[in-house]
Design a protein around this nucleic acid. Structure first.
Lengths: 327, 327
DNA sequence: TATCGTACTGCAAGCGCTTGCAAAGCTTTG
DNA sequence: CAAAGCTTTGCAAGCGCTTGCAGTACGATA
């Protein structure tokens, strides 16, 4: 294994210069830097991350904390983050909390020695806990806003208000919301957005809280039918697809009898039931923005924009249509 | 931040003893060890992983290399692995290859300096590449067998032979196989298992290769109907659920007109379309076994069992039934 | 020309831990 | 009782890199 000392010797400079040529290139003359980089190439040198970490305190590791991997929703977020991290010459490691606040706290404590900072996606802990944590470790919150911490969210509420307008225009009055996991900040926000834009004469019945899974969507159908809703908005795509699947299974036509829409992006899942009305957004951008902000934080800069908001656009498709006539 | 030196002082021993009490407890007298562990507790000491890595060459990081996170199939595998790693006082980091051999090679090279070893799930690289890689870095292969490397697989072929027998007994003759990603080792194995147990008079038509997604399942339905298959076996659950979804969508009854089964475990997905015939197995055990073997490899022991095989059981449900009469 | 500032570079002291080696105290064996 | 072996502990030399400080060379300024 070639060491920095070998590179320095080959380039005819001291180790300090070789080191700086790599981590603080602005501090060395450009021809010297060239010679060093050249030697690095020739010898196939790679820094020893442990040694660097020991002296500089920076491991080059970022952690992204997600509730679960069973929901493919997080896949493109992680992919976007991982790609951006790589571009910043860092590695992103994923840790899973299983959606429990306790486990979340454990995991953060456990890993915090090994990484330079965290992106915590849809955290379950309280604001105070998160603030306390963020005070000692660089951290960015995703899919939630915690005042005082950097955050990045997808603006699904805006998209949901658009959706609600379309539903109202199509004559829907009894609308069911399949709500997400208990205690989810984002779920509350989505529910509020729907309620706020419901208007007079509309009726929003909330079903749940539900785990955000295909199966829960299947199982919610019974209650959807009981409540005689003409339109269903699901907290996420898994719920929406599960509901459509089961509605058809029991002979209810979509959208003729019941319209269905999802509050997140099917395509983001690679699920792609091509006809379901959804919001559309770029989840990879969420991950990427999170990493960008985190890297700024780690480098001791304040992020230029402390709260990033990724736009979400309504995409009306054939699972949504005119309200069925009152039965 | 408390250091080992503080612990040593508090326990009244030298640093070497303190160090050994933690990493080679068999080498210190039990009362001394007690005193050290006590001091560790009292002072809330945690080793500095960078320093340990620098001297010992072991980072305490394991990497699991998966093709994608969009397929929730991998979620419980990762969860099992992460849990087992934690129990072994290590951290498991997930890296995604996007199913490309090139990217796989890049990623392995990129990360190999930072981790103690790899579990490579469903690798796309050639046997020779993998062997070469495994020669220099501890590595366990999952969902594939590479002679000369430790491996762990789920025995879906056995389950598929059982499935085929049920299909034959139910009168199915024209069977379609929705095959998995091009070049997948496991796909070939599953296909072979079906073909081998097909018997006389049966006809297996392979549709694909297909990406293992819900959408591909939806889109395969056209071809399924064209081939007038009475039974469909899908490479994975996403394909199966997609196919059932679309079959119903176009008015084909399941299982009355067409039976559908999946070669992996729906439940493993949290997908849980409760009526689809699948195999049943414990994916977390795959991850756990992989980590166990890897840790043995890293510690310089040969794994007791170099090739682990997780059993898969057929679970017949209502998506499978008697073959439709010839139309 | 003397003085100062700037741009580079090198020296050397660690970062916090592990581990080979040797010393010291015991127990066992002939 | 001496020799040999084992168990337990400490000493000290790093692991490979970063970085504060000091030194040098050179151009700009007065």
């Amino acid at each position: 294994m070639t060491r920095l000392a070998d590179v320095a010797r080959a380039a005819g400079v001291s180790m300090s210069t070789a080191s700086r040529a790599l981590s603080r290139p602005d501090l060395v003359a450009s021809d010297t830097r060239m010679r060093v980089l050249d030697a690095v190439q020739r010898l196939g040198f790679q820094v020893n991350p442990a040694a660097r970490a020991l002296t500089s305190g920076k491991t080059g590791l970022l952690a992204m904390c997600v509730p679960t991997l069973s929901n493919p929703y997080f896949a493109p977020i992680i992919a976007g983050a991982q790609q951006t991290a790589e571009a910043a010459d860092r590695h992103l490691t994923v840790v899973v909390t299983e959606g429990s606040a306790r486990r979340e706290a454990e995991v953060l404590a456990r890993v915090s020695r090994q990484v330079d900072g965290f992106i915590i996606v849809a955290p379950r802990g309280g604001d105070a806990d998160l603030l306390e944590f963020g005070a000692t470790t660089p951290a960015v919150i995703a899919e939630r806003v915690v005042p005082g911490l950097a955050s990045v969210v997808i603006d699904t509420p805006a998209g949901l208000r658009d959706l609600m307008n379309v539903l109202k225009a199509d004559g829907h009055r009894r609308i069911a919301y399949l709500s997400g996991p208990a205690g989810s900040w984002m779920d509350a926000l989505r529910c509020d957005a729907l309620r706020d834009s419901l208007g007079d004469g509309g009726e929003l019945s909330v079903i749940g809280p539900l785990p955000p899974t295909f199966r829960a969507g299947v199982e919610a159908v019974e209650e959807i039918l009981e409540r005689r809703a003409t339109a269903v908005v699901a907290y996420n795509s898994l719920l929406a697809v599960g509901a459509v699947y089961q509605l058809r299974n029991v002979g209810v036509r979509v959208p003729d009898d019941v319209s269905v829409a999802s509050a997140d992006d099917l395509a983001a899942l690679g699920l792609g039931a091509p006809e379901i009305t959804t919001l559309h957004f770029d989840p990879a951008a969420l991950g990427a923005a999170g990493v960008d902000m985190l890297v700024q934080l780690i480098d001791g800069r304040e992020p230029e924009v402390p709260h990033v908001r990724i736009p979400a656009h309504l995409r009306v498709r054939s699972s949504e249509g005119w309200a069925a006539a009152e039965g």
